[in-house]
Amino acid sequence: MNSFKLFKHSLYQFTDLNQAKKMPFWKVIFYVFFLSIILALPITKQIFSIMQDIKNDGQEIAKKLPDFDIKDGTLHTAKSAEGFIYQTNSIIFTFDPDGKRSLSDVTADSIGNAVGLGFLQDEFVVSLPNSGTADSLLGSNQFEVPYANSTLDGLSSKNLKQALDEASVPFWIKLIVFVFTLYPTFINLVINLLFITIGANLYSKIRLYNLRFLDCLKITTYCATLPVIISSLLHFFNRSFDDSFLIVITSLLIFFFAIRKEERQTPPLV
């Protein structure tokens, strides 16, 4: 029996999943990758949706921007230009050419998962949502780009609006996002499968089934197929859904059905 047949049996014919114990281990590993891809799809879609929201919100904010340009380390605007704060679903934007606000003020404005952005009098600032992940990866959730260091020299409201209108996410960026999403998903699934296998192996010993730990691992991997698919579908509707409990418990229940055809050892005589 191959992985495709086991996949079909994992959806409706659980009692044949005990045949997974005969599968080569390298095929089982590839199947774990396949399940990880299923779990990573809704997370990747959510990330792409957030990126699109930020782009759309950026275009909305750009329409509100007065004419400005950055030359020789200085922000130049028309005399009539006034500062403002504008909030969308993903961005809280500050335009303050008069020096009334600071990075700490932009950070204080941030609510929930919104990103704080600001063109201040002397610098461009970014404030990411408070997150331990951001701090560990980037070292901080607040960033300043002074106009004086010439990084933003030549930037103007006109070319900023044009860049936002023409912006699109290249395929290679999407691929990188997917790979970075797949890695932690794979690790988390492996950990869940180990927990399932420990429970399954204990159950098989109590019930006197002649199954090794590796046999239980192979069987539970295919038993996790339906729970993984259900978890992935639920993720499309609820981003904060924690799938670990569902996958572990449901996979164990399917395992109980899967090994019913297994031969049991004769209990020792007392």
Rank of each mutant, 00 (worst) to 15 (best):
F186V: 08
I176L: 15
F143I: 03
F236Y: 13
F178S: 08
P267H: 06
R212S: 15
F236Q: 09
I219V: 06
L214I: 13
Y222N: 02
L233M: 06
I173S: 14
T225P: 10
F241M: 02
T181W: 03
N201G: 15
N238C: 03
F195Q: 11
P268W: 11
T197M: 09
Q142I: 10
I206V: 14
L152N: 01
K158N: 15
P146T: 05
P267G: 03
L194E: 09
S156P: 09
F143H: 01
D215N: 15
S168A: 04
Y147D: 12
L160T: 14
F255P: 01
L214C: 07
I196M: 14
I187W: 08
L252P: 04
S150L: 01
S204K: 00
N149C: 00
W172G: 04
P227L: 01
T181Y: 05
L193E: 12
R260T: 14
P227G: 01
F143Y: 01
P267E: 06
E263H: 10
S204F: 01
F180I: 11
F143N: 02
W172N: 13
T151D: 07
Y203R: 04
F171Y: 15
T197V: 05
V190K: 10
F241A: 02
F241L: 05
S150G: 00
S232E: 06
V169M: 15
D242I: 05
D165W: 04
I187H: 12
Y222Q: 04
I249C: 04
N210Y: 07
S231Y: 12
S244N: 12
V177N: 08
S240P: 06
N149V: 03
S140V: 03
I198F: 09
L208C: 02
K205H: 04
Y183V: 12
Y222D: 00
Q142S: 02
G154D: 04
I198P: 10
V190Y: 07
R239I: 13
T266P: 06
D243I: 12
R264W: 03
E262P: 05
L155H: 00
D242P: 15
D243M: 09
S140G: 04
F178I: 08
I191F: 11
I173K: 15
A148D: 14
A224W: 03
C216Q: 02
A163F: 04
L164Y: 14
E144T: 11
G139W: 07
P184S: 13
L217N: 09
A258Y: 09
D215M: 04
W172D: 09
S251F: 05
L214G: 10
L234G: 06
L217E: 01
S251C: 05
L246Y: 07
R207H: 10
E262T: 02
P146F: 00
F178A: 10
G199Y: 10
D242W: 07
D165G: 01
Y147Q: 11
I191D: 11
T266S: 06
P170R: 11
R264S: 10
K205R: 15
Q142R: 08
S140D: 05
N159L: 06
T220E: 06
N141I: 12
